[in-house]
Structure formats: C-alpha cells, structure tokens
Design a protein around this nucleic acid. Sequence first.
DNA 1: GACTTTGCTTGACACTTGTCAAGAAGTCTC
DNA 2: GAGACTTCTTGACAAGTGTCAAGCAAAGTC
Lengths: 211, 211
Amino acid sequence: MSSAGVMPQDQPARISGIDKIERRRIALAESALKTLGELGYARTSLREIANNSEFTHGVVHYYFRDKIDLISYCVRYYKTKCAQRYDEVVETATTADELGAGFLAKMTQTLVDETPMHRLWYDLRAQSMFEDQLRADVVAIDQLLEAMIWRILGRYAELVGGEPAVDASTAYALVDGLFEQAVVNYADDPAGSSERLVQRVSSVLPKLITT
Amino acid sequence: MSSAGVMPQDQPARISGIDKIERRRIALAESALKTLGELGYARTSLREIANNSEFTHGVVHYYFRDKIDLISYCVRYYKTKCAQRYDEVVETATTADELGAGFLAKMTQTLVDETPMHRLWYDLRAQSMFEDQLRADVVAIDQLLEAMIWRILGRYAELVGGEPAVDASTAYALVDGLFEQAVVNYADDPAGSSERLVQRVSSVLPKLITT
DNA sequence: GACTTTGCTTGACACTTGTCAAGAAGTCTC
DNA sequence: GAGACTTCTTGACAAGTGTCAAGCAAAGTC
C-alpha cells in the first residue's frame, strides 16, 4: 500500500517528497470518501470530489491514473481504519459479559458515528459485483472483517468456556447480515435501529457457541 | 400494483387498451431488469435499456415519467415474482428434513438461475440508502422476504416440534447475510459458493429453533 | 540568478446522460 | 375514407462526465 519507511535517512528530501505525494493522495482519498459516503458510488463525480477538497478537479489525474484507481485507493485506505476497531475490547475484556458489552457498545458507536462509511461499504460491495476492478479490494476487506469477527467470537467462546459452533465465514455472514440491516434501516429510525441491533446480536451470539 | 380485472366486461375496448399499456410497461420493465441485472444501477442508461428492448429510447418517457419511475416500477414488478418462491415447499413438506432439503434446493436453484436478479437486488438496496425515491419500494420487498423466511422457519419449528428462537427480522437478517455472501462470491466460485451456502444454512437453521 | 522539476489550475475534448418536442405511422371511429 | 386519437421514432437540447494537454507558479538545483 505505501513505500514509506523504506528509504534510508541520508535522503531526507526524497523521503519528504514521497511523503508529500502520499499525503496528497490521502487528502484526496479522504475528500473522496466523504463525498462517496454522502452521495454513493453512482452519484459521485470527480469534480464533486475535488469540490469537497482544497484542490481543483484536474489534480486528481496528477495523483491517480483514473477514477477507478482513486476509488480503489479509497477502499484500501478505508480498510486500514476499520478492521481493528474491536481489538482493544477483545484484549482487555476478562469476562464474556464484558466482552459482549464492549463489542456491542463499539458496534453501535460506529453505526452512529460512521453511518456514511458503512453505507458506502455496502454500496461498494454491491458495485464490486459489476465492476471487476473493485473485486480484489472488496474481497480483501471482507477477509479482514471476517477475521475481526472471528477473533471476537473465539475469545468469547474462550471466556465462556466453549467452542465456536460455526466457522469464521458463517459467523461473519450472520453478524454482517444483522449489521447491514441496521445500516439500511438507520435513516428511518436511528435510535430504534441501534437498539434492535444490540438486542439481536446479543441474542444470536450465544447460539454460535457450543459449551 | 395493477388495475387489471377491475373493469366490468361491458367495456372490452378500454380493458384491452389499459392492458396494452400495462403490457408495454411490463415489457419495458423486463428489458430494464435484464439490463440492470447485467450492468448494475450505476452503469445502466435509458438508451441501453431501450437497446435491449424492441423499442427506441424515446418510448420510455411515453410510459414512465422519468428514469426513477421506471426503476421503481421494475422493483415493484420484481417483487411479485420472488417472494412466494418457497411457498410450495412449505405447504407440501411433511417432515423437517423434507422442508429443509426443499428449501435449500430452491435456494441454490435461484442463486444459480437468477444470479443477475439477486445481484441487482443487493445493488438496489444499497442505492436506496442514497436515493430516497427507492426507499419505500425496497422496504416493501424486504418485508415480503422477511415474511417468507418467517413462514419457512415457523413451519420448520412446527415440524420439529419446537419454537422459533428469534423474531422474524432477526431470522431474515441472518439468512439474508448468508445468501448475500453467496451472491457476492458467486462470480469467483459458483459451485463452491452454492455448496457452502447449503452447508451454512443447514448448520444455522437448527440453532434458530428451541425444542 | 537562470534552469529544471514538481505541483497545481484552467480550459478544452469527446462522449454520455436524462429529457422532451415535433412529427411520422398506425389504429380506431363515424 | 376523412379525422381523431394513440403509439412510437427521430433528432435535438442542456447538463454533466472522465480525461488530458497546455501552461502558470512555486520549489529546488546548480
């Protein structure tokens, strides 16, 4: 993803140069993600992305080959920020209840705080079924998320003194189904949506463990 | 959805007139669904839809107010064809195993035979998060599908001599999560995708029943 | 301080999009 | 068969799209 940190320190100018390029790409990616999260893939244009940044529309092609290259970069950038979300909870929790409560709290928090990003994720995953160039990046994120859920479920089983009753992909698909439902319904009823998510996940989690 | 069958028989001309309009709308909707299923929402234009039909691009605005009106009509038309898919299985099965096998068989069959339609459905549900005009129709279909899953689970519980352990929305979200995963992965590995779907659904279903 | 490189803006291009109006072709009515 | 209505085609429109080339301005280099 990034070549930063590879250059030796006797070329400080070049390092900052590369870093500057990378920082610009990140700045553009963040503007793009903001726009994509608001408008969705189908309605987001490069000019709109540039309007939401500090640059003009031409600069996009200075840092990215084309539109799909930018969006692909956005997806890869996004993944670095989302898949370790629950790691702290997993590591610090000492009882199953504590883990469950911490997981659910973080889950509803990200549902509320980052609704546009989650909307975008489900949009992009759907787009990847039609746009081959997005496939690989989407698959990679799906795997990260699956591993994340698996760490939680594994630790949960450990704390409860049992074993996961389903494999990692199944567990991810189930939890993701519940979460996507909450994201889709969030606009209509934010409070109720996160409330129901908590209740549903906590009712399902125990069923995925054999004691 | 349709006003057919409401007119009395003493106005045969008007009936066939209205029917003709409705038939044209349906023909256009089917062409549109075919195109949408192949290209996805973002890449489907009215001209492309017309190219895949027997008409020219202008005719769309004779039968539909605008693009979103056509797509909304498509969604409503689509729903009439998909939510009773498992009803026969539910009604004829006399044992839990028979119901499960029939359900899984139909499920993989529709996954294979109607992949583009399922892709489109997940695409449109994502679009509905950004396009308010699609919301109502998507919610209506989601409810139909939820009721469909609920009928299956209820009958399954009955045959197994137990009770559903989750509510209808939860059951739907879980099964839908598994199905969406299968649809997304279908392009990469069709056979494996449906195989895993069968295995996963059949491993999860019993967990949703308390005996 | 001239020269080169880098970063960014501007304006243009070819093309596609949704929409609509004018009118042709067909159908029906009397 | 003339006139009216329905159905469909054609061509145009304004707006928006991704892309790119020319050139300006600042930073770095010698």
